[in-house]
Amino acid sequence: MTASPILQTFGLSAGYRNGGKETAVVTDVSLSLSPGSVACLLGPNGAGKSTLLRTVAGQQKPLEGTVTIGGMDLQHLPADRLSRLISVVYTERSHAGALTVGETVSLGRQPYTGFFGRLDRTDRRIVEDSLEAVGMLHLIHRYLGTLSDGERQKVMIARALAQQTPLMLLDEPTSFLDVASRLEVMALIRRMAVEKEMAIVLSTHDIANALAVATDLWLILPGGEMMSGPVAEVIASGAMDRLFTGRNIVFDTPAGDYRLKE
């Protein structure tokens, strides 16, 4: 992991603008992520994980500072350029149940297709490859509405893969999934990072599974301060115990998960 970082933030503050009032959820954040790395974004509910991800995805303006991808400031990239650099996977359900799996993943080719969104042979091959990568190619003609939550999430990941971006952001990709699907999705994330040299950021509450695939940890600590670095360093710093200050849990390093204080 010596490649130069694909994603960097400089003095980034992310939060909401409501009227003239700005409410920052994280302040003065400097993060970086290299191709092939998986950063796991952790923090209590309401800490601002989704806000930070939206800001990094370029879907929300930073309050201060900059986000760069491949050295380019997101603020200065037009939407169509951005869509070839960053893909996203959200938890929220869409009303696309009457699209087939193939049609859904094809939407990931929109940044590359022409005015009417028609696919050429290369696009079709990429759609099939993306489905193959998540193990869903055999369901290509099935309707999205007939899939289980786990299958559906994998299709949404295939859709993001078809976008062929160097950076993928996943906002709680495993919530609502059963334990088998959760493990499969995490393994898939690891494989995408290694095989496709992608930089991946995922926010999650599934700490034990996430630690198994993460190379980097990004912690949103109480007060909007962030702590980031390679997994081992962050754990050794004791920051994991500051993550849930005031709650009756401690981080059990050998187990790689939180447990109740005795």
Binding site: A57, Q59, A79, D80, R81, L82, S83, R84, I86, S87, V88, Y90, E92, S94, H95, A96, L99, T104, L107, G108, Q110, P111, T113, F115, F116, G117, Q163
Partner: peptide, 23 residues
């Protein structure tokens, strides 16, 4: 009929559509 591409992107919801380069 000229709006077919963004209409399809919107099926996934506004946030996904935005990430596909649609304004």
């Amino acid at each position: 009929f000229l709006l077919i591409k963004p209409l399809n992107a919107l099926l996934l919801g506004a946030r996904y559509a935005g990430s596909l380069g649609i304004s």
